[in-house]
Amino acid sequence: MRRARIMMAFAVAGATAVVGVLSLVPGEQGSQAAQSVARPPSPGDPLTGDEITRAGQIASATWRSHMTTGRAELLYVERDDDKEAGDRRRADAYIYDYRTDRLVVRTVDLAKGEVVEERTGRGVHPPPSRGEETAAAELLLADPEYGERVRAAHLKAGGRPLVSAADLGLRALTFTPRPGDKVAGACETHRCVRLFVRLPDGSWLDTSRIVVDLSAKKILTLEW
């Protein structure tokens, strides 16, 4: 969950605040970030926390206003391991624009400090980020009917009222509609996720029919 907060902070506060936040991360981050070390990373090492921060800043430079308003989000930064790039340290920043439903993947050359490649597409959906998991849970809680059900289930399982989405164990997966889907057909292009919700007693809510459309900010109920 740590990284979720970082990405959210990035989206809201912009780049300047992020340096301070991310410097706490190396060694603790669940994924990819290499340990904080004095020596420079070897070509095949995972990205360091500093490299992730820098790549995110460079890739997002022209996107900051959109990220501040929540129109777009930096999902995550992955090491680019294209073998044609040889030993160059490169990072792929995944940026999603919910207004135009475009995924933008910007490849940053860390030595040059610049974006060297950009790919954009509609209807391409990388896995949901931690920030998107929280956003999806907030939409679910804001839904009059489902929100009530989640709160009731949480109270029953945990013996205390739910305060925020952070009280729930969350995991989101990309939702891909089947051909001819009447309810969730828009998810061909919209950013849609399934959400798994774990309650304080370790049980999971049955959310198998629920899809959260992050582009339309809507909850969809699948029919099958």
Binding site: G30, S31, Y76, P127, P128, R130, L173, R178, R194
Partner: peptide, 16 residues
């Protein structure tokens, strides 16, 4: 039964 159908690779590095 035909549903649901999951593609379980999400951001699994974060789920280690």
């Amino acid at each position: 039964s035909g549903e649901p159908r999951f593609h379980d690779i999400g951001t699994i590095g974060d789920d280690a």
